[in-house]
């Protein structure tokens, strides 16, 4: 597997795929996509990198254990959900929207942060599972 081509390719593939995954995440509100699929694409990027460069390299690149992304993602999504409760006295999960439009993303609102949380959790979960299996296989 660890052919030179793949190694070289993965160097470029990783950032490319990550970019793509974020694009998918951001456009989710308007076209097919969203945090979940975006997260999966990002994980695939890392998995490919791991295949090419070895698991240890990927881990080093990530700096933190991928499992750590799960509480971060959950916390982000949770915050997006409770912000209206804490600061606006609105019910849980009420969408809070920044007035005005941004490119690509469209309206900026709490839903986006929520989706970002989903994205992080999915990356964390997928990588944790696959890395753990590979390690103990």
């Amino acid at each position: 597997m660890k052919t030179i081509i793949l190694r070289t390719a993965s160097t470029y593939l990783l950032p490319l795929l990550l970019m793509f995954s974020i694009f998918i995440l951001l456009r989710g509100h308007y076209s097919p996509g969203g945090g979940f699929v975006g997260g999966l694409i990002a994980s695939i990027a890392f998995v490919l990198h791991a295949f090419a460069r070895g698991l240890d390299n990927t881990k080093e690149l990530l700096k933190i254990h991928p499992g750590f992304l799960m509480p971060i993602g959950l916390a982000l999504a949770f915050l997006a959900g409770v912000t209206p409760v804490l600061f606006f006295d609105l019910p849980f999960m009420t969408g809070i929207w920044y007035p005005g439009q941004l490119p690509v993303i469209g309206s900026l609102g709490s839903a986006l942060f929520f989706d970002l949380g989903v994205y992080l959790v999915v990356v964390g979960v997928t990588l944790t599972i696959i890395f753990t299996i590979t390690e103990s296989a």
Binding site: M93, W97, S107, A111, D115
Partner: peptide, 18 residues
């Protein structure tokens, strides 16, 4: 504020599920 209704349901209308 979303046009992909499925995604809007997932992150807003039924966000609690997600």
């Amino acid at each position: 504020h979303g046009k992909n209704v499925v995604n809007v349901i997932l992150v807003d209308f039924r966000g609690a599920d997600t």
